[in-house]
């Protein structure tokens, strides 16, 4: 794994005052820039906020938005909201899992794709929907979902 750009970590830290309440926000910003939480960055956060490293790890492990391993370069997110479930979201997940060779929550071996689920995007009228890097695609069928990757 490439070495972690500590200058960038430092830059992120300095966007917020060193109060423990900013722990989640800082970790989210690091996640957004690095696509995961590098160990070095978590150590730096613990030092900056003066909180135990154990607390940084527990928060990192608790929230679904945070990850200790790198997420895929392109993130495919299938909505698993109720409307999407009723209109066949599980079929989309099955087709994508088969094509990408990974399960929900995993990243392909080459690091290019990540497959995740979300509990509702509020686009229920377009159900079932999936997003690729944040762009929503609606009225999907398993075959149309495969065209996304």
């Amino acid at each position: 794994m490439a070495s972690v750009d500590l200058n960038l970590v430092d830059e992120i830290l300095r966007t917020r005052p060193p109060e423990p309440r900013h722990l989640l926000a800082l970790l989210q910003e690091i996640q957004a820039r690095f696509r995961y939480l590098p160990k070095e960055a978590m150590l730096a956060v613990a030092g900056y906020l003066d909180v135990p490293l154990a607390r940084v790890f527990s928060v990192a492990g608790f929230y679904k938005a945070l990850s200790l391993t790198p997420k895929g370069e392109r993130l495919v997110t299938v909505c698993q909201g109720t409307a999407c479930h009723l209109r066949g979201a599980s079929g989309l997940v099955g087709a994508l899992e088969k094509r990408l060779g990974i399960g929900l929550g995993q990243t392909s071996a080459d690091g290019r794709y990540g497959l995740e689920s979300v509990n509702c995007l509020g686009a229920c009228a377009l159900a079932p929907v999936a997003t690729v890097d944040g762009t929503v695609h609606g009225h999907l069928s398993p075959s149309k979902a495969l065209e996304l990757v």
């Binding site: 423990p20 309440r21 722990l23 989640l24 926000a25 607390r55 527990s58 928060v59 679904k64 938005a65």
Partner: peptide, 26 residues
């Protein structure tokens, strides 16, 4: 504004406040 971390339980009021305090949302 405080952005959540993708945990459904944080909609529960005491979890939500724990999350604002920068802790696990339990």
């Amino acid at each position: 504004t405080v952005e959540g971390g993708g945990a459904f339980v944080c909609g529960e009021s005491t979890s939500l406040m724990a999350s604002i305090e920068g802790r696990e949302g339990q």
